[in-house]
């Protein structure tokens, strides 16, 4: 993690009609930093990271991504969006692989269409990525034939094939059976070690603690607490963050404090 800020969020507010989803969010993401966003469901975590690559527009504030500026209430030009999408990759909760294309074609489509890479060059890169996750022998399979964990790893490869500077993950393991979560998280962790800048919405607290540099707790339409991962997860300062962590780390309600659970680490 360096001092260079690659995503600078200032005073961002998002509404759907009259309903405020979140307001006045400000946040810096540095190069090679891993930021995990946690918080109760429905507070707009997924909506927020979709604002970073403009899958959702927002109403007020600014987001600077790698020198491009998104301004609340304004639509960026096509060329700006293109540049933004070239440098920001995204992985979705529901994988969103293209079901009618093989694994390989899912991965090479954007490099060929957007970056105008030759097919062979795109295939070489795709096979290299697939080999990293042990799926090179599934290249010619349709997504439906893969397990959820395999589909998500392919989806990560698809995003990486565009060689993004920043990766966004929207609850990448929420739809997976528990025994498949590990492979996906392991891949994300490896990616973090290569110095990839990442913003990650997750419910995996142990993973956030281990991989993230910074944890952001979203609650009540804003950021309740933000700081170094261990600090926030083990000894949250605000009551809002504390009560959220107590509930997720200790859902059945025995009277243990969150820091004890976080230190235990074996009973998620």
């Amino acid at each position: 993690m360096s001092n260079e800020v690659v995503v600078k969020v200032r005073g961002v507010t998002k509404r759907f009609g009259d309903r405020v989803i979140f307001e006045n969010i400000s946040l810096d993401v540095h190069k090679s930093e891993v930021v995990a966003i946690i918080g109760p469901s429905g507070v707009g975590k997924s909506t927020f990271i979709r604002c970073i690559n403009h899958l959702h527009s927002f109403d007020e504030g600014t987001i600077d991504v790698q020198g491009f500026r998104l301004v609340g209430g304004q639509s960026p030009s096509k060329a700006e969006l293109q540049a933004l999408h070239n440098s920001v990759g995204m992985v979705f909760q529901t994988f969103n692989l293209f079901p009618h294309l093989t694994v390989l074609d899912n991965i090479v489509l954007a490099p060929m269409q957007v970056k105008k890479q030759a097919r062979q060059q795109a295939i070489d890169r795709a096979m290299h990525l697939l080999a990293m996750v042990g799926l090179q022998n599934r290249a010619n399979t349709f997504p439906k034939r893969l397990s959820g964990g395999e589909q998500q790893r392919v989806a990560i490869c698809r995003a990486l094939a565009m060689e993004p500077e920043i990766m966004l993950f929207d609850e990448p393991t929420s739809m997976l059976d528990p025994e498949l979560v590990g492979d996906v998280l392991e891949f994300i962790q490896r990616l973090a070690r290569t110095g990839m800048t990442m913003v990650l919405v997750t419910h995996e607290m142990m993973f956030a603690k281990e991989v993230a540099d910074t944890v952001v707790v979203m609650a009540d339409h804003g950021i309740a607490e933000m700081g170094p991962a261990r600090e926030v997860l083990e000894s949250p300062r605000t009551e809002r963050a504390r009560s959220f962590l107590r509930r997720v780390l200790n859902p059945v309600g025995s009277p243990r404090e969150p820091n004890l659970v976080a230190n235990g680490g074996d009973d998620r």
Partner: peptide
């Protein structure tokens, strides 16, 4: 989700439609 995935990959509307 298919639209979202295509947009996030930088595919423009024409290619998204066609492919």
């Amino acid at each position: 989700g298919q639209h979202e995935a295509a947009t996030a990959l930088g595919l423009d509307r024409k290619i998204t439609m066609r492919k």
